[in-house]
Structures are given as C-alpha cells and as structure tokens.
Design a protein around this nucleic acid. Structure first.
Lengths: 205, 205
DNA sequence: AATTTCATGTGACATTGTGTCATAAAGATA
DNA sequence: TATCTTTATGACACAATGTCACATGAAATT
C-alpha cells in the first residue's frame, strides 16, 4: 500500500505521479520497469518516491488495484443487469474488457499486467468475482448471484464454481492478448469454454 | 534456450552448473535471483555464464523445461494406466505432484515457480496436457485420451476442454502452495472442482 | 614442428539501478 | 518567535548487469 504521504498529496501532483507510473509500467513489465524513469518522468527527486511508496511493487500494485476496482464495479453492474445470471454477466464483462483492450488507451499497461500475472495479482482480479477479500468476504457478490440454475448445493461449492469461472475468464483474456486474437475469435473461444463449463465436460447420460 | 556451448560441456561440469541454478532459483524467484550468486556457487567466471546462457531467464526456463518434461512423462503414464480416462489421469497426476511437494526435495524451487507463474510459463506447463507445442502438435496426447465419455463433438472443443482442465489443475496446485494447504485439503478442493467441471456448472434439467 | 583457426575461458569495467540517510524546507501548534 | 512534526531533496554506498579485449587450448593445416 502507498504510504499516507502519498494520499496527502495535492490532487494535481498525485495525478502527475500516477501518470508517470502508468507511463513506465506501460513501457515495461514490473521486472524491467525502473524507479529512475518514474521519478524522471514525474520530475520529482528520487527520495520523494520512497516517501510515497514502499518500492516498485507497491506502486505497481496500487495501479492494479485501481484497475481491479473499476472492473469490479463493471461486473456488479452486469450482474444486476442480467438479474444475477452469472454466465450472462461474465460474458458481458469479458466483452467490455475486450473492447477496452482494442480501444488501446492504456493497453500496453494491461498487456504487461496480463502477460506477467502472478498468483498474487491473479487473486486480486479473481476477487472481482467473489467480493473483497478471500473466502471471508465472499458474501456481497454471493447475494447478487442467482443460484437457481447453478449446480451447487452449498456455499463452498458456489465458491469453487466462482473460482473456476474467474480463472477461465482471466485465462481467456490473457490468451487474447498473448496471441493477439481478434475480438471475435476471443469471444468465440470464451463462448466455447463457457458452454463446456455450463453443460459439463462429461456427456449427459 | 541455452547455447550450444552449454550442451558441449562435460557432464560433471554441467551438473555442477545445474546444481547452482537450482540453488539460486530455490533461494529467490526469478526477479530477485542473481547471476552473481550463481557463478559464485558454481565457481565459474562471470563471463562463462554468458557463454552458456543468454541470461537469467534463459537459465530459469531451462530448469523449468526439465521439470515440465518429467511431469509430462508422468501424465502419459497416468493416462495409459487409466485407459485414457482424463479425469482419473489428472487426479492421479495431481496427487503425485502434491506428494512430491510434501517430500520437499526441490520444493522451494517449485514454490518460486508456481507463485510467480506467468502466462509464458503456464503455457509450458499446460503443454503437459496437450502435447508438445501449441495447437499444432495437439495430436499425440489427443490419441491417448478416451473421448467416449467427453462432451465434445470435434477436435476444437477437445482442445478447449483440455485447456480448461490444465488451467484448473495448475491453479489448484498454486493454491495448495500459496495457502499452504494440507495434501488432503488440496485434494478435496481439486476433487470438488473436477466434479463441478464434469457434471457442469448448470443444473441438469 | 610450426602455424593457423576456431571454440571456449576470463575477469575487469562501464553502466544502470537500488534504497538510505543526513540535512533542508515547510507547516502546524502554542 | 520557538518548537515540533511532516515532507522534500539529492548525494552516496552498494549491488547487479552485460560486454569486451584478451588469454588459453585443442584441433586442423601446412
């Protein structure tokens, strides 16, 4: 987490800093990104950076959190729009993110994030689907999901079901980016996998 | 890929080098691992390292490839043992890897690998399930899988089905490591998810 | 045996980046 | 004004990287 000092910053200075972060983390993945570039670009002394953040990762995670927050809101909107239908909601979410990707605003940042996604970061994203923290706060989102059609008999199974959907969704996004698939191809692939998931990988007897 | 020079090395020297690599990549994830430590530990001059490998990642990927190769063999054995039953095979594979993890041989290396798995590395592992390269060489493994019970009507769907299983398997391994789950809990979780996958996330009507 | 050629070995070096720390400036409180 | 707390600053010590000019050695050629 950024230090308090960062949050105390006047808005304009904070914006400049965020801008510089996005610039650098768009240029290179966490591994190769350099604090030196960030401070140069934001035109602040090196020492100041360490007043605001613990280090490179801290700043990186901060940027990601913002992205995740906005996706989470989007997902909740989708869920409500489709009366809690998980599959419709997730399809819509996927579509919107794919569209955002092709717009190419901060596409390079997302590219770097997705192609270098570790477990820690993937978890941040998976929480889009299952609420705030890990298994504890799994309730808010839970309440929005219509369970009538889902093949689950208890909360634990629901948790795993949501994990599965989240994982598959993210992997499909990653493949779209990595293989530079067209939006249509990506949507198609995702649809095939969602259908398999819904109907089951085993033949219905 | 390591350079030819590396492969030309006499076996004993090669082993020492591999040993040093494992040591360093067990100590720290790719990001924090240092070539300096490796050359110190293998007692070779710095310049030599660059004769053998392109750089840090190169050496890292080389180690991972070895791991993947051995898992791939294991998986094929499992597939044959269960007459091509994908779910039995993957359950057995999971169990064996979990056991290997608790033995704690090169557990720290695997920990670092799994907790910092990027798309590129995950793909290497997913290829355990679908053959050598990407979609092209999807045939060898394909031939071993019994499709009678699988809910797929063509090769493309089979490809996606296998992708799904691969992804979920890997995520379950990661969760086991990240949350330090007991072998039993990890197996249980995996079983729940596999069952959901088999039966379908939607209720059968 | 002498010489050339090619593959490999070697470690010093320039460069780049990191995180810290002593000190300065600014702001708040009284 | 004096004092205390928070923030700003950039020089610095340290660590790691990748390269390069040169050394070694082992085969091939004369």
């Amino acid at each position: 987490m950024p230090k308090q000092t960062f949050y105390n910053l006047p808005d304009d200075k904070k914006q400049i800093l965020i801008q510089a972060l996005e610039e650098e983390f768009s240029r290179a993945p966490l591994f190769h990104a350099s604090i030196s570039n960030i401070v140069k670009s934001a035109d602040i002394p090196r020492g100041s950076f360490y007043q605001y953040f613990e280090g490179k990762e801290d700043a990186y995670f901060y940027l990601i959190s913002r992205q995740v927050e906005s996706s989470k809101k989007l997902f909740i909107t989708c869920l409500m729009k489709y009366d809690g239908d998980l599959f419709h909601a997730v399809t819509e979410l996927f579509k919107q993110i794919v569209e955002e990707l092709s717009k190419g605003d901060h596409i390079n940042f997302l590219k770097n994030v997705f192609l270098n996604m570790t477990h820690e970061i993937e978890n941040k994203f998976t929480r889009i689907f299952n609420g705030n923290d890990s298994r504890g706060q799994f309730c808010k989102m839970n309440a929005l999901i219509n369970k009538d059609n889902l093949n689950v008999s208890n909360e634990n199974e629901l948790y795993h079901l949501v994990q599965i959907i989240g994982t598959i969704t993210i992997r499909n996004l990653i493949e779209k980016i990595a293989q530079e698939l067209s939006s249509e191809t990506a949507m198609n692939n995702f649809h095939i996998e969602l259908t398999l998931l819904k109907e089951g990988l085993y033949k219905r007897s």
